[in-house]
Structures are given as structure tokens and as C-alpha cells.
């Protein structure tokens, strides 16, 4: 339970700027995620917080205390690793107990705390197993228990689910969510998986080329992304080229596409100097019968995905819209005409 304050933090690898964070505050009890593609500097940032690499410039403060030059063992934070990094010569119990032993707790306290942790992660029957005898999902549960057991001020997660297969990943993700609800930890979570970021985080920072592009809660970054990169990194996208025709109200504008379509949209985070594009999320596109009022389009392709259908609708010479509809709600075949209703759109920076 602590706040993290980062000021002007910079790290270079050779001449390449790996990470540069001007100012970032992670609040007490917050689940904060650094999200971005590989090589965007998110892991570098996390490792600087952990003290595993030292920054070239800047400061890190935890609860107001400057810990920039502290070795990792004096920062009172723990970490969950991508490859689990469990101690292979110890059993599950001793792995979880390691941080407690380093904090000189009595064996009695350790016993109680470790069993409580193992129970919470539903692996108490594995306490005496050797590490190589348990599965990947169980190993990462041990990794999480080991990190949380000492009640550190901050828990760092370095892509903890990316070494698990898809089904396990979902399961452990759900458990992390539950855990976060039960023990109110300050967590910094690094991932390239937007679904993980969305489900787990209180706030998300999206990084690209070492820089944070946008910070916001999952809803904000999804519905009002700062630019096209953020928009396409999180969720499906339709981009329509054009420019703002006029402002309707303080936060609504009329957007004119290059094909001459007029679409009402939210203003988003743009200013006058930006080159603009209209973002329409696939689920904001509703298809209706061609007789109804709205934008006219033709079905260019239709893919059957089982529970849903994926349509591509051409609404102008340069623009198509991708959308999904439940497969019980089939609006027509390829080349047939439909009416498109755009329920939500936002103007963003290209």
C-alpha cells in the first residue's frame, strides 16, 4: 500500500532511448498497467522501479522516499516474473517462505502466512511438492503467492501470464482479479495483452518507443484513445479519413469524410493542429435493412465465425467499415445493400 512517484526517468541502451517517463504517479492501492508492444520500454521501466537496472536520469520515489539508488532488496517491493523464476532447489512452501525468511519472521508466523497464501491461491495441497513436479499454471500461482506473502509496499508483474497457454492464461487472469479484490495491493503490471490490461487495471499507460502516449482508465483509453496507435492497440478499429467540418457543441463535432459523408462524432482529445481521423469501433456500427434511414452501404464480405458474423461494408470509395453481428441476425449476403447506423464515433489524432 504505497504511492510511486516517477520524475523524469530516462534509460538509454547505447544511444537508443529505451524509456523516458516525464512524470507518473501510481496511487496507493492502485492496479496500474504499462501496456505496449514489445520493445516499447515497459519492461525497462518496471525493472528500474524494481532496482534491477539503474536509470541514467531521474528519480523514483515510494511514499515520498527517494529510492532511486537503493538496491532491490531495500525497496520493499516484490516481483512476479514472466518465466516464473522459482527457486528450483526448494519446494513450494520454501519458495513462498523465502521473502518472509529474508524479513526475519519467526517460523511460526511464516508457517501461518505461507499456508494462508497457498490457500488463497488454491494450491495448499502442493506445499511439499518440488517445483518441477507442478504445472506451469501452478508454478505461476506459486510465483504470485511468493510475491504477495511478505506484504510488500508494491508488487511488480512482468508479463506474468505470457508463458501460459491461452486457457490457463484466462484462468490465472481471473484469479489475479479476485486476488486484487481481496488484498488491496499497489501493483504495477506490464503486459502486451490488451485483454489483460483491460480486465485487471484501474489505470493503463500505453507506451510506444519508450514514451507514455496516454494514461487513463480502461474505458477512457478504449473510447477516447489519444491517437490511432492507441486505438488500434486496444480493440478493433475502423478508421475513416477526413476532417472536422464544424463544432456542434463543446464536445461534439460534425466530421466530413473524404467521400463526402457527414458523421456526428465526439471531439476526443484533438486540437486544431492535429491531422485527424475518425475512429469507429466495430461494435458501434449497427446494420439495418436498406429501406431504413442512415448511411447507405453494400456488403463487401461476410465471414461466418460461429456465434457471430463479420461483415465488411463499403460506405464510400475510400472507406469500409468492419462490424460484427450475431449470426442469428443475418442482414444479407455479399453485394446486397444495407443501411449503416454509426452509434458512436470519435475524432482522434492520426
Amino acid at each position: 500500500m504505497s504511492t510511486i512517484l516517477i520524475k523524469n526517468l530516462k534509460k538509454y541502451y547505447g544511444k537508443v532511448l529505451a524509456s523516458s517517463i516525464e512524470a507518473l504517479e501510481i496511487k496507493d492501492g492502485e492496479f496500474f498497467t504499462l501496456l505496449g508492444p514489445s520493445g516499447c520500454g515497459k519492461t525497462t521501466t518496471l525493472r528500474m522501479i524494481a532496482g534491477l537496472i539503474s536509470p541514467d536520469e531521474g528519480k523514483i520515489l515510494i511514499d515520498g522516499k527517494d529510492i532511486t539508488n537503493f538496491p532491490p532488496e531495500r525497496r520493499n517491493l516484490t516481483m512476479v516474473f514472466q518465466n516464473f523464476a522459482l527457486f528450483p532447489h526448494m519446494n513450494v512452501f520454501d519458495n513462498v517462505a523465502f521473502g518472509l525468511r529474508m524479513r526475519h519472521m519467526t517460523e511460526k508466523e511464516i508457517n501461518i502466512r505461507v499456508m494462508e497464501m497457498l490457500k488463497m491461491l488454491r494450491i495448499e495441497e502442493l506445499a511439499n511438492r518440488r517445483i518441477e513436479q507442478i504445472s506451469g499454471g501452478q508454478q505461476q500461482r506459486v510465483g504470485v503467492a511468493r510475491a504477495i506473502a511478505p506484504h510488500p509496499s508494491v508488487v511488480l508483474f512482468d508479463e506474468p501470464l505470457s508463458n501460459l497457454d491461452a486457457k490457463l492464461r484466462e484462468e490465472v487472469r481471473y484469479e489475479l482479479k479476485e486476488l486484487q479484490r481481496k488484498v488491496n495491493i499497489t501493483a504495477v503490471y506490464v503486459t502486451h495483452d490488451q485483454a489483460e490490461a483491460m480486465t485487471l487495471s484501474d489505470r493503463i499507460a500505453i507506451m510506444q518507443a519508450g514514451i507514455i502516449i496516454q494514461i487513463g482508465n480502461p474505458k477512457e483509453v478504449y473510447f477516447t484513445p489519444a491517437n490511432a496507435f492507441v486505438a488500434s492497440f486496444i480493440g478493433g478499429t475502423n478508421f475513416i479519413d477526413g476532417d472536422v467540418e464544424k463544432e456542434i457543441s463543446q464536445d461534439r463535432v460534425l466530421f466530413r469524410s473524404n467521400d463526402g459523408l457527414l458523421i456526428e462524432a465526439r471531439k476526443g482529445m484533438i486540437n486544431n493542429y492535429d491531422s485527424k481521423v475518425l475512429l469507429v469501433r466495430p461494435e458501434a456500427v449497427e446494420l439495418r435493412r436498406s429501406s431504413e434511414n442512415g448511411i447507405k452501404g453494400t456488403i463487401e464480405s461476410k465471414l461466418y465465425l460461429g456465434g457471430s458474423l463479420e461483415y465488411r461494408i463499403r460506405i464510400g470509395k475510400n472507406s469500409t467499415l468492419k462490424t460484427f453481428s450475431p449470426s442469428v441476425n443475418d442482414v444479407g449476403d455479399v453485394n446486397s445493400n444495407v443501411t449503416v447506423v454509426i452509434k458512436d464515433a470519435v475524432v482522434i489524432k492520426r
Binding site: L52, F81, A85, F87, F98, A147, P150
Partner: peptide
């Protein structure tokens, strides 16, 4: 030995010396 094992020991509160004694030596 995977280098992240040493990192795990360090963030959990072990000094470099204790990491060598408790983690590396047995391994």
C-alpha cells in the same frame, strides 16, 4: 542458471551475499 532467479531473490529481500549462499550455492 536463469538470471531471473537471482533477480527474484533480490527483490524478495536477499542481499547479494545471501543470494549467493542461499540460491546459487545449492544450485
Amino acid at each position: 542458471i536463469d538470471p531471473s532467479i537471482e533477480e527474484a531473490a533480490r527483490v524478495l529481500g536477499a542481499t547479494r551475499l545471501r543470494t549467493i549462499l542461499k540460491i546459487y550455492l545449492p544450485l
